[in-house]
Structures are given as C-alpha cells and as structure tokens.
Write a protein that binds this DNA or RNA. Structure first.
Lengths: 200, 200
DNA sequence: AGAATGTATAATGTTAACAATAATTAGACT
DNA sequence: AGTCTAATTATTGTTAACATTATACATTCT
C-alpha cells in the first residue's frame, strides 16, 4: 500500500509499537535486540534504532549497557494533567492555523478517518489506538502544527498504553466523524468542541 | 569527571548538541554522518544513533534516505505558548512531588547549581544553556517528575536555539540561586514563584 | 536550446563480526 | 551455611564492509 516504501527501521518500529499497544509486552519486560531481530528476520541495527526511537516516544526506558524496558502507563494521578496538556496543544494549533488547511490536507484527514473506521470494524484495540492518534495528527499537520507534533505525540503515546474503550468502537468512530465534518466545513469552534468531547 | 563512564554515543550526542547550541551548525544545515564520524574519530553507528536521538529532542529534522537537517528555532508566535506549557509542567511536578525530595536529591540540585555558576563564569552561552536546563531538570527529578521530563525537555530544547541572554549571566545565576534556596528550605510557593520569574 | 535518460557519485540503510560490559554461575574459603 | 571471588555466559556497544537510495552530471534525442 505505501507509495513511499518504508525502511526496515520504520517497519520494525511500527511493529514493536503495535505489539506494545496490543499488550504483547507487559510493563517491566526487558526487550532483547537479538530476540526481536530474529523474529523480524533482520539484523540488530534497525531494532536498536527502533529502541532509541520508542524510548523517546515514551514507550520504553533505556539503560546504557542494559537494554530497554517496557514502561508502565502514566501514574493515574498524572493522566488528567497529561490529557489537559494534550488538549491545550490541539486547541492552540487549530486556533492558530485553521485557515492554513487546503483541499489536499482535508483529504488526508478524511483518509485517516477511513482508516480509523476500518480499525474500528476490525475490533483490534491496538489498531484503533494507532489510527485514532493518526487522525488527530493529520488534523494538526493540516493546521501547520508540525513544530508541536513531536511533543504532542509523546504526551499521547504513553496514554495509549491504557487504551481500553472496550467494545464500543462504533461510538469512537462517530466521535471522530463529529470532528471531521465541522473541520471540513470550516467551523473552527465546533471542531474544537468535538475534539474536547472526544478526548475528555 | 563522570563516575559512570559515558558510551561513545552519549559523548557524540552531547558534543553535537553543544555545537547546535553554540550556533556552529546554522538552521537548515544538512549534517553528514561521515563528516561528524570523522571529526570525532568514531564510526557512523553512534553518530547515527545521536541523530535519531537529537531528532526526537527537537533539534534535528530527519528525512529517510536523506539525512538530518538542523531545525529552525520555534516560530516567534509559538514561543509564548511553548513557554506557558513548560512552566505549567514544572509547576505541576513541583506541586505534586515537593515532599518527595530527600537530602541526596537536594544535593544533586545544588551540584547542578554549582555547574551553572561555572558556566556563567566561563561566559559560553551554549554551556550556560545546557547547565540551565540541567538545573531545572534536577529539580523536576527531585520531585519525582521522571515521567514528564522527556516531554518537558523537548519543549525546552528547541527554545534554547535562541538562547541569547547576552552578557548578563550573573543575573541568570542569581535567578537560579533564588530558586534553589526556597527549594532547599521547603518553601514550595517561593520556589514556584522564582521559577516563574526566571522563565518568563 | 531544452527535456529526457542514463551513468557516476555520494550519501544513508543494513548487515555481520568483533569488543566491551553486565549478569550469572561455580567454586574456594571462612 | 554463607559469602566473596573468578570464570562463564549473555547482552549491548562499536566497527567496517556491503547494499540501497537519492542526487548531480553528462549525454542523447527532439
């Protein structure tokens, strides 16, 4: 599917991230370069790169000469604060760049929405989580928020480790349709309100 | 000096970060793995790792098969917002974990303060910037804010690319003394107020 | 002249071997 | 039995060679 062929590193990173979100690697697990390299049929190099990247995304904790450990989800006490920060960033970016968006960018958001729908239909929680984030990211990028995306992503990522909107993925999908429609039609206030309702 | 010997990757990362903050690599510059590897007398591996890491810290922009480019400082319009987020995180962490700190952690903050003083005396802006951030980080860690430090760091890092409190480093040092003293003496409100005055 | 194509070059991506470090185990000593 | 030490093993850190990709340049065709 990808027009731009992914590098091995990207594929490995995506696969490990998916496994983390699926709960395949419980918190506290030590991840071994050799083990994962063997599973993916690649050398340790790209796996190593993925470890560094995922450490910075907040999923893994890196210790020199000792490897990486799967981090625990954020402390419950912190989750509300992190959500607040996340919402603050999304709101700021949208308010600042709502007019920057063009047809091409709106299409990319719509594409992300379709992918989210597929994920919801499949019923796989990890896929829903990944597509959910992707949808929001596309909106931020459409509003010229490239600069803040890495920080925003870091905030979201670890929160996903507790992503358990069990079952009701059709509701999740509807919430995102409610975001997309005013976004497409140029109603900034409704867009932000819908995002607020979705995240909280 | 380091009791824990650093890996080559850490040394390379620190050196490149220092060069970035010194303005040695202007925004837009493409960094070459081979060139830097040759300069440091190491192989491309650790340099590559450093590139990935510094990309996630916000200094560099990574493009597959094309290498890394030095990013521009944040848009002036965004700087106020980023500062607000940064302050929000510091305040939250301190309010949440002010009582967690023990003597050992207070000492590590004091050590960071001494290093900041040395940097201020030396007059090198990049060193002041690095030690400044280190001081704040030690405070956050002393208050058990490990979870939020990576995000916080990302927000600070790129802001540093415009760090130009030219000349008056003695003032910068004083501001940090004004943070440390109430911190050591257990006055949370004064600590936060001093941080606010320092960052704004 | 200008566009398209093919080739050469230089960079990153990937691999596998080797080095250094940390964890484990076995054994000697008290 | 317990504990310290030494050898072993497993794992990460680093390197250098090779593969692949992107860019620059020359060449050919219209």
């Amino acid at each position: 599917m990808p027009l731009i062929p992914q590098t091995v590193r990207e594929q490995v990173t995506n696969q490990i991230r998916n496994d983390l979100l699926s709960g395949r690697f419980p918190a506290g697990t030590m991840l071994r370069e050799i083990e994962l390299a063997a599973r993916f049929g690649v050398s340790r190099g790209p796996v190593r790169d993925a470890f560094i990247q995922l450490s910075h995304e907040g999923y893994l904790a890196y210790q020199a000469n000792r490897g990486v450990m799967v981090r625990h989800p954020p402390d419950p006490r912190d989750r509300e604060f992190i959500t607040e920060l996340r919402l603050k960033i999304e709101t700021y970016v949208i308010e600042r760049g709502f007019e920057d968006k063009n047809e091409e960018k709106i299409n990319s958001v719509e594409l992300a929405l379709e992918r989210l729908k597929e994920a919801c239909d499949s019923g796989e929680a990890s896929q829903v989580a990944i597509r959910d984030i992707e949808f929001h990211q596309k909106i931020l990028l459409a509003c010229g928020g490239d600069d803040l995306v890495p920080t925003w992503r870091q905030l979201c990522s670890r929160m996903l480790l507790t992503y358990t909107r069990l079952g009701d993925y059709s509701q999740a999908y509807k919430e995102h349709v409610a975001i997309f429609e005013p976004f497409r039609d140029g109603d900034m206030k409704k867009t932000i309100a819908a995002i607020q309702a979705n995240i909280k």
